Amino acid sequence: MDALRVYGGRDDLLDEPMPGHAYVDLVDGPFDGRLLDVTGWQDEDRVEGSLLITDRGLYGAGGRTYYAPDETNAQGPFRWRGDTP
């Protein structure tokens, strides 16, 4: 089985999930296949999703890419919704 990559890690390292942490899958977009650490997030936070810093999106370095859960499942996965400067 391939090691899972966690958002926020260095690109040249395969960052594995940490025991005791909660993760959601990131689907589509620049972080497709990675995990997002949502340890300690309240349900209200999960519903909002997250803007993640990326240099892989439409706006290059310093841009943000937006991931949010489907309306029917705030627990995840988080799907890519688009990019913003």
Rank of each mutant, 00 (worst) to 15 (best):
D37E: 07
D55A: 15
L58F: 12
W41M: 12
V38E: 01
V27K: 02
P30W: 13
T54M: 11
D37R: 09
V38A: 02
V24T: 10
D45T: 10
G33M: 08
E48M: 10
L52R: 12
P17D: 01
L13P: 00
R79W: 13
L52T: 01
G20S: 12
G82E: 03
G76I: 07
E16M: 09
D37Y: 03
A68D: 02
D55S: 15
D37W: 05
V27A: 05
G20W: 10
D70I: 00
L4P: 01
W41F: 15
G57M: 09
G62M: 08
P30C: 08
G82D: 02
G49F: 01
M18P: 00
T84N: 06
N73D: 14
N73I: 00
A22K: 14
M18K: 15
P69W: 10
Q75A: 15
P30H: 08
L13F: 07
L58I: 04
T39Y: 04
G9C: 06
F78L: 07
D45C: 00
A68K: 13
L13A: 13
P77K: 13
I53Y: 06
G9T: 10
V6D: 09
R46N: 04
D43C: 02
L35C: 10
R5D: 14
Y59F: 15
G57H: 12
G57L: 10
A22D: 04
D55R: 15
V6R: 01
D55Q: 14
W41Q: 04
Y23A: 09
T72Q: 07
V27R: 01
T65R: 03
D55G: 15
E48H: 00
T39A: 05
Y66N: 08
D11R: 14
D12E: 10
P30V: 14
G49S: 11
A3E: 11
D25R: 06
V27M: 05
W41L: 05
R64M: 11
A3V: 03
D2R: 07
G57P: 04
L26P: 01
D45K: 00
G40K: 05
Y66K: 13
L51G: 02
T65C: 15
H21W: 00
A68Q: 13
G63H: 07
R56F: 10
R56V: 00
L58H: 14
L58Y: 13
D45S: 02
D28Q: 04
W80S: 03
A68L: 04
V38Y: 05
A3W: 07
L58R: 15
V6H: 00
D12Y: 14
D83A: 04
V27N: 01
G62K: 06
Y67F: 13
I53E: 08
E44I: 07
A61N: 09
T39K: 02
G82V: 04
D28A: 09
Y59P: 02
V38Q: 04
A74L: 11
R81F: 11
R81I: 11
G82R: 03
L26M: 07
G40H: 11
T84F: 08
R34F: 14
R34S: 13
D12N: 14
R10S: 10
Q75G: 12
G40R: 08
S50E: 15
F31S: 05
A74E: 14
L26V: 11
W80E: 08
A74I: 06
G76M: 09
E48Q: 13
D37H: 05
R46F: 00
P17V: 01
P77I: 05
G20Y: 12
G49T: 12
R46E: 08
P69K: 12
L52Y: 00
T72K: 09
V27H: 01
